[in-house]
Every structure is written in structure tokens, then in C-alpha cells.
Nucleic acid binder design. Sequence first.
DNA 1: CCAAAAGTGTTCAGGTTACACCCATGA
DNA 2: TCATGGGTGTAACCTGAACACTTTTGG
Lengths: 239, 239
Amino acid sequence: MTTASQKTVKQLISENRDFFKIAISVDCVILGFENNELKVLLIRSDLEEYKDRWTLLGDLVRPNEDLDTAPYRVLKERTGLDDVYLEQVHTFGDLDRHPAGRVITTAYYSLVNIKDHQLKLEHNQLHWHPVRETSNMAFDHKKILDTCMKQLQDKIMEHPIVFNLLPEKFSLRELQCLYESILEIKLDRRNFRKKFFLMDWLVDVDELEKDVPHRPGKLYQFNSQRFPKVESKHAVAAE
Amino acid sequence: MTTASQKTVKQLISENRDFFKIAISVDCVILGFENNELKVLLIRSDLEEYKDRWTLLGDLVRPNEDLDTAPYRVLKERTGLDDVYLEQVHTFGDLDRHPAGRVITTAYYSLVNIKDHQLKLEHNQLHWHPVRETSNMAFDHKKILDTCMKQLQDKIMEHPIVFNLLPEKFSLRELQCLYESILEIKLDRRNFRKKFFLMDWLVDVDELEKDVPHRPGKLYQFNSQRFPKVESKHAVAAE
DNA sequence: CCAAAAGTGTTCAGGTTACACCCATGA
DNA sequence: TCATGGGTGTAACCTGAACACTTTTGG
């Protein structure tokens, strides 16, 4: 029997040319929050099989880049952002997942602040699409999206990551609405406030909302002193 | 810019031959529990670079099998087991992870009952190795092992999966010892019993331990009525 | 009778849930 | 003044942690 560890890759290549007919890609579930709604960055598929259906942003992994670097590159190329929160989620490799051939794809989710960068609306109708309205996606991208959403749901109560989706200053209402959008449940307002103040994730910046048709709420910032931002290890070289 | 979704794979292959110099493999962290110790199934590396170091069981993914089927095949080939608990954990794809070339690998962990199948001790010193004594592994396999262990730790308090590591009937002492081995912490005996009885994961089979040099404990089974086993979707065709 | 592990309850602290009223603002 | 959401506290409940003595068996 042949195993990866028993021969060199060069031997393997020459003995098993077929193995190298598998392509590897990354797909990014790029999430944003806009108008109190969770959105995902999508384009139209231009494969004939998936005409008019939405797809995630993805690309083949390059021979000279780390797997975990590829999604940073995709984000940089498509949105201009290069300092984003990114998590690997799962790798999808069913034989029939891509109609045109064998592509194994590793899925990542990314949390970005929509307002910080206006999209130059590219070809293929690149746009922010409501996460709730994604039943008709191409390939297995709906399954990828759902897997990422589940993992995100598991993470946000323990880890202060949703702040990547918000502007620098935000109200508790916005924060709660964001949690409700991700978890898809309603939360109690008083308990939500209590819990977040106790966790010490927030700093009161002593400002109020503006231009709201009701009593303005206080604004807060993420407590970045207590949770120093981890510097990205995946800077993408300029092209 | 080229993306996976904008061209067919055939086009991509002809335009980007280099992309297909990436190989994809699976690596299995096959865990067992023996003599109150957590063990992982390892072999000796026979790459010169990693002489005398231990490696996980792995293999290249075949062009005609689903990614998630490959680890079932590896297990079947190496241990004879084909009805095992398996979870995909993470995909490792750093450029320099394999000294002989570009191999991206998807890691799985598997929980098996060592006593249910005696290993035909193969070549390469295939054997059950204590998880605690794995500091000197080949490639990035220590990192892969650690990542699997962390994910397993997160899972076992919420999901009744450790029973895959135990014989059909077991004592509470064994179960607690298993949890302590995985979590690497000591647990309170009374609280452990209380918690597990409340969760209703166990069925009292009204038998006692035999051949112990002290008061024998009751034996239990996993409550498989309450948690029906999910049938494996990954049966491997006979070779 | 000794060694070893089995079996068993209670108390306390902390966290989660449920729940209702007054307040500040803009229209 | 009205509509809208902001801001606040308490009681009940549940969970997890700490903790010690008696019982059963084999040697």
C-alpha cells in the first residue's frame, strides 16, 4: 500500500499521476452587518449549470502560498481589505460537488465592517446579500454557508469576535440585534446588557447616538485593551 | 483574475498546470483507550528526514473517492475496522509542512475500542502509542494531534461520543478515568456520577466488575436507545 | 483486619431566566 | 402629547464545586 509518509512526493507524482487531477480551492463566507441584517458577499455564478445562482468568493490555492493565506488573498483582491478576522471552518470534498471536475475546497468565514470600505461593484454583481435569502446558491455553497454560520454561532458567546462586524462605536441595541441575527433567536434586553457589562468586553465612550427618532442610546467601543488584536500572520504581498 | 467558479476545471487544468502539483491527503488521529491511558495509533516514518519519528496514518485522497470517505478507507486498510466514529477536524496546508513537496492534508480523529480488534502488527511498527508521549512526531503531526485533542475536549461534555472508546460494558471508574485522560484534569467522583446519571447517557446492566482486588463496581452500557447510532454513510467497498 | 475503591447528599456560590415600569428624545 | 426605544433591579431557578464517611470485596 502506498502512503503519503512512505514515499517522497516526487515518487508519488510519477507513480500516481491521477492523484494530481484533484484541484484545491478556498471559499470565503464573508459576512457583514448592514441595516440590522446579516449579509454575505456573493457573486453570480457564470457556469452554465448554475446560471443565475449565487456563489461564494473563492479561488484555487496557488502552488506557492500557504492554504491559510489563500483566503486573505481572495479578500484582498475582491474587497481591498487586508486586516480581517478569518477562521477556517471545514473542507468539502465530495466527488460530485463541482459539476466540471474534482475540486476540494476549504471554507473560511470572515467578519468585516461593511461601512469601512465601499465596494467597487465589480463584474458578476458582487454584492452584499442577506444571509436569510440564500436558498438558491450554486454548488454546495448553501451547505458551506450553513456550516460556517453554525460554527460562528457556537463561537460568539465565548469569544469577542462580532465586533469585527461593527463600526468602531455602536449602541447596545445594534450589538444585541447583531447577536440576534447570528443566533436567530430573540434575547432579553435587560439580561443582554447585564451579561455584556459583566464580561467587560465594552468601553463606554460617553457619547450618544445621533439622528435617531427616539431617545438616543449610549455608544460603546470594543474593549481592545483587554483583548489586544492579534496581528495577522497572513499579510498578502502586493501584486 | 481566475476563480474556481468562473471557468471549468478542464480550462483551469490546461491554463494552470502548476496548480495540480498540489497533492491532497488525509491523516487520521485514531484514538483508543487501554490500561486507563489514551493511545493513538502510529507508525514509524520511513522518510529519511524523519527517521525514527512517529507519524499518523494517512494516505493520498483518490481521484474517485469523496474526501470524507478517504479516512474510512485508511482505517479499514490499517485496522480492519469499518464502523467507526470519525470527525473531520482541520486542514493543514502550509507550504513547508512536508519536506518532499506540496501536500495539503485534512485531519480526522477517530474513536475506536482497542479490545474489539487485535492489531495484526504490521510493518513500520504500527502500534498504540500513549498520547502523552508524542513530542517527537514527524511533519506537523504533533500539531495535528494537538488540534484534534482540543476539538475532542470541546465535544465530549456535550456529546456522548467517548463510548466509542470503551467496551460494551464498563464501570463508572473507567468512564471517569477516560474523561480525565482526554481533558487532562482531575474530576470529582461524586459530581461526575451525579452529572452522568442526570444526563441519562447510561443504562445500568445489573452486573458487577470481576477480578478486581477491591469492592467491584457496577457495570453500565451506553444508552443507545436514547442516542441511536447514526449509520455510517462511508462504507468502503471491499478491495 | 487491612487496603482499595465503591457508593452516597448537602451546602454554597454564581450564572441564567423571567419579568414591568419610568425616561428621554423627535415628530 | 405621542410613539419609540433607552435604561434599570429583583426573585426564582439551575448548575457546578466543594467536601467525608460508610460499605464491600479480595488478599
